[in-house]
Computed example of a mutant assay.
Amino acid sequence: MSKDDNIISLIDDNGKEQKFEVMATFDIEEDEYAVLFPLTKEESEDGAYILRIEYDENGDFVLVNIEDEEELENAVSVYEAIVDEML
């Protein structure tokens, strides 16, 4: 797998395309999550994004913002634990 296989494009709220590298995916119970890092310098200053992975009626994955603060905090904690284990 090449690095380009981990690059995805998302459209922001303003209709502007942004490119991200998928750095990791992980599961918490029944839910799947993806950790994305922006490839543009302006966006990269914001750090990583963690989004929930869901699937549409065709079985294609869809990345969804995590609205629930507790769910987001849990996802961040799990990702940080994964990173700590790798170091």
Rank of each mutant, 00 (worst) to 15 (best):
M1L: 08
M1H: 07
M1K: 07
M1A: 10
M1G: 12
M1N: 06
M1W: 05
S2T: 12
S2K: 14
S2P: 08
S2C: 11
K3N: 05
K3C: 02
K3R: 04
D4R: 12
D4L: 14
D5Y: 04
D5N: 07
N6W: 07
N6P: 01
I7Q: 07
I8G: 04
I8L: 14
I8C: 06
S9F: 03
L10D: 02
L10E: 04
D12Q: 02
D12R: 01
D13N: 12
D13Q: 11
D13H: 11
N14A: 08
G15L: 08
K16C: 03
Q18C: 05
Q18H: 05
Q18F: 00
Q18G: 00
K19F: 10
K19D: 15
F20T: 00
F20D: 00
F20R: 01
E21G: 00
M23F: 14
M23P: 00
A24M: 05
A24K: 09
T25P: 02
F26N: 01
F26A: 00
I28D: 08
I28R: 05
E30P: 00
D31W: 09
D31A: 15
E32F: 00
Y33S: 00
Y33G: 01
Y33A: 00
A34W: 02
A34K: 04
V35G: 10
V35E: 07
L36F: 09
L36D: 04
F37C: 11
F37W: 09
F37K: 13
P38M: 04
P38E: 02
P38F: 04
P38G: 10
L39D: 10
T40W: 02
T40R: 12
T40I: 09
E42R: 12
E43W: 04
S44N: 09
E45H: 11
D46C: 08
G47V: 13
G47M: 10
G47Q: 11
A48N: 15
Y49K: 13
Y49E: 11
I50W: 06
I50E: 12
L51I: 02
R52G: 01
I53M: 08
E54T: 10
Y55C: 06
Y55V: 04
Y55G: 03
D56Q: 08
E57P: 07
E57Q: 15
E57C: 15
E57M: 15
N58S: 03
N58K: 04
N58Q: 05
D60E: 10
F61C: 03
V62E: 13
L63S: 03
L63D: 04
N65H: 13
N65Q: 14
N65L: 14
I66Q: 07
I66K: 06
E69Y: 06
E69T: 10
E69V: 11
E69W: 03
E70P: 00
E71Q: 09
E71G: 01
L72K: 13
L72G: 09
L72M: 15
L72V: 08
E73P: 03
E73W: 04
E73Q: 09
S77K: 15
S77H: 15
V78F: 06
Y79T: 12
Y79H: 15
A81M: 08
A81P: 01
V83E: 07
V83S: 01
V83D: 01
V83C: 03
D84V: 14
D84Y: 14
E85R: 13
M86H: 09
M86P: 03
L87C: 02
L87T: 03
